[in-house]
Amino acid sequence: MLELEHGFRVVDVHARLDPDEEAVATRGREISPERLQREMHQAGVVRAAVSPGPRPAGEGYLRANNAVARLSVDRPFVAMARLNGPRDIGVGTAARLRNVAATTADHHAEPGDVEQYAYNHRFHGFVLDPTRDGLPTEAVLEQIAATDSPVLLYSTSHVPPAAVAENVLEYDFPVVLSSFGGFPLDRDRMAEALTMLDSYDDLYLDTSFVRYRDVLERGLLEHPDRVLFGSGAPDTHPDVGVMEVLTLDVPEDLMTRAFTKNPARLFPGLAPGADD
């Protein structure tokens, strides 16, 4: 594929790095770290925040997270640690009661894990996917807040923006809600997430898999400091996400914010001085 030509410094807050051959063979596109790096280069993406994909039920993320950190060395990647937990994310009394009764298993993340991941900036933030992994305990979320680290949170039909607000946004750390909160292609949830930006100062949205020009344009025009570029690679080629932003009818300054300035404020490892 030909390299995209554009004058922007693009960084990506949402990419997956499969840490082993089994993961590559069983989930999504079959893509190695070398191929992911090559595709990022083709799209003009200079750095990307990466995390492991989902592991089998009953298996923790310690080995996968460490593998991603190791594979990121000498590549234009910054590692994000994926965390799991025993709780159910939801809205209302029933969800709260289930969470009170939830018990932590050996493979679930603990506060000490968060502290170690954040030590010396080996990991540049955390990833939560409550649909697949469950929600970590309150103690773990409080420890994330103590590290002052950003969180990329996967939103799905089972994890709508309202549930994120009730279960996560009360904690003092920035949350980047994937796909404008509307994956897969749910306009109503995307609109809900955009409205929530007025109420939650630490909420941000990434552009992965949004696919609607009017929704992306509304986000950039109404909330220019709260939208971050995310490709969703390798489930899609990063070229696709970059082109979707490049073809929007918005000023170039707003594209620069989404591609560079906004991600760099939350993820110092993606800032211009970190390229070398």
Score class of each variant (00 low, 15 high):
Leu2Ala: 12
Leu4Val: 06
Asp12Trp: 06
Val13Gln: 02
Asp20Arg: 13
Glu22Phe: 12
Ala23Phe: 05
Ala23Thr: 08
Arg27Tyr: 07
Gly28Pro: 13
Ile31Glu: 09
Pro33Tyr: 05
Gln37Arg: 15
Met40Ile: 04
Met40Arg: 05
Gln42Ile: 06
Gly44Lys: 07
Val45Tyr: 02
Val46Leu: 12
Arg47Gly: 00
Ala48Pro: 12
Val50Gln: 02
Ser51Pro: 10
Pro52Leu: 05
Pro52Gly: 07
Arg55Gln: 07
Glu59Ala: 08
Gly60Trp: 00
Asn65Pro: 15
Asn66Gln: 15
Ala67Gln: 11
Arg70Val: 05
Arg70Pro: 07
Arg70Lys: 13
Pro76Val: 04
Phe77Val: 03
Val78Ser: 01
Ala79Lys: 01
Ala79Asp: 00
Asn84Val: 00
Arg87Gln: 10
Asp88Asn: 14
Ala94Gln: 15
Ala94Asn: 13
Ala95Cys: 13
Ala95Leu: 10
Arg96Leu: 07
Asn99Asp: 14
Thr104Asn: 06
Ala105Asn: 11
Glu110Phe: 10
Pro111Thr: 03
Gly112Gln: 12
Gln116Thr: 11
Ala118Cys: 09
Ala118Asp: 00
Tyr119Trp: 14
His121Cys: 11
Phe123Asp: 00
Asp129Asn: 15
Pro130Thr: 03
Thr131Val: 07
Gly134Arg: 00
Pro136His: 07
Thr137Cys: 08
Glu138Asn: 14
Ala139Ser: 15
Val140Phe: 03
Leu141Tyr: 01
Pro150Tyr: 01
Ser155Gly: 15
Thr156Cys: 08
Ser157Asn: 13
Val159His: 04
Val159Lys: 05
Pro160Ala: 06
Ala163Asn: 08
Val164Phe: 05
Glu166Pro: 13
Asn167Pro: 10
Leu169Val: 02
Glu170Lys: 15
Tyr171Val: 02
Asp172Phe: 08
Asp172Leu: 12
Pro174Tyr: 02
Val175Arg: 07
Ser178Tyr: 02
Gly182Val: 04
Phe183His: 10
Pro184Ala: 11
Pro184Asp: 06
Asp186Ala: 09
Asp188Leu: 13
Ala191Gln: 12
Ala193Trp: 01
Leu194Arg: 07
Leu197Trp: 06
Tyr200Thr: 04
Tyr200Asp: 02
Leu203Asp: 00
Tyr204Thr: 03
Leu205Asn: 01
Leu205Trp: 01
Asp206Asn: 13
Phe209Gln: 06
Tyr212Trp: 11
Arg213Asp: 13
Val215Cys: 07
Glu217Ser: 13
Leu221Ala: 11
Pro224His: 08
Pro224Glu: 00
Asp225Glu: 14
Arg226His: 14
Val227Thr: 09
Leu228Trp: 02
Phe229Asn: 01
Phe229Thr: 03
Pro234Cys: 11
Thr236Phe: 10
Thr236Leu: 12
His237Gln: 11
His237Ile: 04
Thr247Asn: 15
Leu248Ile: 05
Leu248Cys: 10
Glu252Gln: 15
Met255Ala: 11
Met255Tyr: 04
Thr256Asn: 12
Asn262Ala: 10
Asn262Lys: 06
Ala264Thr: 01
Arg265Pro: 02
Gly269Ile: 01
Leu270Pro: 06
Gly273Lys: 08
